[in-house]
Design a protein around this nucleic acid. Structure first.
Lengths: 186, 186
DNA sequence: CGAGACATGTAAGGGGTTACATGATTTA
DNA sequence: TAAATCATGTAACCCCTTACATGTCTCG
């Protein structure tokens, strides 16, 4: 958005470390949960994700095996193997990892909200609105039930962040439902 | 979702053609616009996208150079070169392309709505709600102005699909704004 | 007519999805 | 105890992004 598009300028951040990687939302999910859990295996992460963030930001669990190693290569987390038994990998945040997480958390959000809803595309390209709406409403209903279920089970005890995120999810699902219901009526 | 997850079953659709590719949302955007435009260059597509779908489903223009060739390899579109001048590539839908588009358009939507909003993640992982909300509201305001601008310029003449998609976009942006405004107040 | 801005593309690399596998644990 | 399901992980592929380039208008 900023800057003239074609200027051939080489932007190269001075990196504080030789191995600098790009941190994606997935990265921050890993960092975030490691910060909460202390030390965790990919499977621990997977379990946490599917109980929480996964409800509104889903991705395949295989990512949770690859991503921590990427972060380890960049020095944001450390690995160690279980001494006995399955010898699974245990990951922990490093100081730099904590710092990266904190920076991200408090940075103003640059990237904006984006729809990326397949149903909208179909609508755009001429799908029959009422039929589309009915199909979409079923999916929405299922997701709403899910989220409201979660919200019920942890009504009181949950920390503020997750609770607010959940509320946001429910709010948006309801808004979406409103729209598709209107389409059905027309 | 269906079937037991670990059964080693080889699902292999009988394909009506040797070269079968996976069709992504990007594919359908290309197919959709080719259907509307008849014959088009990648740049034509880019222009259409940035005026319409791009407002709620954005991606780099380089995709619009690669994707048509992928579709051509699968026999869904045909290519020809401009006979003179720039000798740009012109793409047209084939019968199979039309069919694929129609199938997609009328198929019930399987994949559901998904949030995938970076701000939600930050909220989840403990960003300071009010500050985050204020930053987010600015972005939302800008996007709303955009969409409402479009909606004003083509208020009457636009076909139903695009118009409804636009309405959906505005609806959801407003819903999002509502939520973040509440956060600021608290 | 020189400088931006627009038009038009190519190439490399990596993140993410899909598919495949094989222990472990519950349940009928 | 066989079968299903959960747990745990690996591997390959490919779409997509980022970065880089080079025409070609257009307008002061």
């Amino acid at each position: 958005v900023f800057g003239s598009p074609n200027r051939t300028v080489r932007i190269r951040r001075l990196s504080s470390d030789a191995s600098d990687i790009r941190l994606t939302p997935t990265s921050y999910i890993v960092l975030g949960f490691l910060s909460l859990l202390g030390e965790a295996t990919p499977y621990d992460l997977k379990r946490m994700v599917s109980l929480s963030v996964g409800h509104f930001w889903s991705f395949p669990h295989s990512q949770l095996y690859a991503e921590p190693d990427r972060l380890a290569a960049a020095g944001l987390v450390t690995v160690r193997k279980e001494p006995a038994g399955r010898r699974r990998k245990l990951y922990t945040l490093t100081g730099r990892g904590e710092a990266a997480l904190a920076r991200w958390r408090s940075a103003p959000v640059l990237e904006g909200y984006e729809m990326r809803d397949p149903a909208t595309l179909k609508l755009f390209f001429g799908a029959e609105p009422a039929a589309l709406a009915r199909a979409e409403l079923e999916v929405l209903a299922a997701e709403l039930r899910e989220l409201e279920g979660v919200s019920a089970t942890e009504a009181s005890g949950a920390p503020e962040g997750p609770r607010l995120a959940l509320e946001y999810g429910v709010h948006m699902l309801r808004a979406s439902r409103e729209f598709w219901e209107r389409l059905v009526r027309e």
